[in-house]
Structure formats: structure tokens, C-alpha cells
Amino acid sequence: MTETLIAHPGARLPEPGPLPNRLQLTDDGQLRHMLTIEGLNRELLTEILDTAESFANMNEKAVKKVPLLRGKTIVNLFFEASTRTRTTFELAAKRLSADVLNVNINTSSAVKGESLLDTLRNIEAMNVDMFVVRHEESGTAHFIARHVAPGISVLNAGDGRHAHPTQALLDMFTIRRHKGDFTKLKVAIVGDILHSRVARSQIHALNILQTGEVRVVAPCSLLPANVDQLGVHVYNDLDAGLKDVDVIIMLRLQRERMEHAHLPSEHEYYQLFGLTSRRLQLAHPTCLVMHPGPANRGVEIESAVADGPHSVILEQVTYGISVRMAVMSMVMGAHQA
């Protein structure tokens, strides 16, 4: 199938190649955009994690700044509320010496007037170098990457239910720091898989890194169709799903899941799928507990677990900066190469 979208004048056309990488990789396999984890290879993921490692060491020092992106302008284009992701992207950009512009757009008002493409064109006209985009509709980062002027990179900071690649990368970074080799690990992702872009990106990343076993644990009403085809073992029982796992990733449960009849109540969900101290004992004794945040205490996770010795939830936030610095510096490098 050929590209039939009306391209930006002078915009590069995606090269033929395996989906979905003809957009996000250059001819020689470097990152041009970061849209999705899907389809990246193990070498590239490892390179990102290694680069993040060097930034992590720097981030622990007194002077936390390098001039890698000096003179570059990075725009945080957020159509959906976010605190953690936006601020860590902002800090990452600043530690790379880039100028940062935060644009928060309330989608309801954006829908009425300006189209997404108009917004993009206007900001593009200010000679920016990178867009960090979050949007409630799946595929938005792909759409923007197709239409930006050559030389501008697009980083996906979350699109609908589709992908949140830097979140998955920081999760992999956290796991690698604690566990090293992925091939012997059992990882369980628990909760609302159906609506989760985080889970989709994590599943791709874990599989690319050849994780021993990737499990998803959820009631059938929160599992997407054919989820097994993503390369996971499906569990509907939390106790069974946690048995001997090395990493537990809990997902946030949105309140509206009750309104749309996915679940009867938070109470019953917590009874069946909440991570409690008792259940944690079913996992491997050195198990990590992770959560992309913000956590609903008493809905998907017990406070004692979220704050307990197994929890690396705050480390995830810290590493998010290093990982985003790595991705930003790599995509800019690909453009300059």
C-alpha cells in the first residue's frame, strides 16, 4: 500500500521497509523519531539504555548539564494533562542545554477552531527542532511525524491507547539496573491492559529484550482482543499470575471503567486484582514493584506495597530523565548525521 496522505511540501516520504519503522528510523537504522517501541531491534534498545546509563551517572553529580543540544528548541506539545511525563521531558531537555517551550492545549477548544495540523504548522514556523507530543488519539505521533518539515524530530509522549515508548524505556532501564539480564526474568503486567499505552509499549520492549516470560493479568473485560498475539501469557487470576515473578508492573485503573461497565466496583477490583503485601509474597523474594504513576492507592495497590522495600516507583521517575535525555540526544544525532 502506498502513502496517499498529502505530504508536507518537501517532507521526506517514508522509505519502504518493515512496518512500523520506515517512519522512525533513518536509512542506516538510527532513530529519527521515537514513535513506538514496536519493531525496534535489541541492539538499538540496548544502545538507548546504555546512553541513558551515562546520563544517569551525570544526573547524580552536582553539575547536571551538558551542552549537547545547545541552541536547539524543543516543544512539549501536550493535548492531554500530564505532570510527570511533561516535567521529566522538560528537565531532560534543559540538562541537554536545549530551549524548551511548553504548549498545553485543551483538546476541547482545539477541536473547535484550529486543526491539529494548523497548530503544528504554526509552531513549526518558529523554527523548532523537536516536538514532544502527547494526545488522546492513537496514531497522533505517527500523523505528526508524517507531516513535520524535514529535520524536525517527533517524540511520542503518549498517544491514546497506542504507545508510550519513553515510559517503557525507563521501565526497562529500571529493571536492568536491578536485575541485569532479561532472559531469565518473569514479568507480570497487572491491570487495565485494554486501555493502556504503557502496557503495549512495555510488552514490545520486554519481548525485544528477550524477557524469559511476559505475563498480563486482568479480568477479561480489561484485555484487548487477541492480546496473546502481542507475545504474552494471559492470566485472569492474580495469585497465579504473580507466582515466582521477578517484576510486577501495576497499571492505573481509571474511574470511568466503572461507568462503561468494564468493572462492577473499585472494591471488587481491589479484592481480585489489587497488589497487597500478602499477594506480594507469592512473587520471587527479590521482586520489584513498579507503577507508571499516578497510583490509586487502595484501588490497584496497597500503600504499604507502593512505599515498601520492593517498590522502585520513585526510581522510575528519576530514571525517566536520563532515558529521555538519551532519546533526545540520539534523535538529534540522527538528524545531524
Binding site: E38, G139, A163, P224, L230
Partner: peptide, 15 residues
């Protein structure tokens, strides 16, 4: 269509 591709792309499916 609700199936493997809608799951991969994160799009709401029609069963």
C-alpha cells in the same frame, strides 16, 4: 475491526 491490529494500534475496535 476489533482484533489483533486494533490491539496493536491501540484503536477502539468494532467487534
Amino acid at each position: 475491526h476489533e482484533g489483533a491490529v486494533s490491539t496493536r494500534l491501540g484503536l477502539a475496535g468494532i467487534p
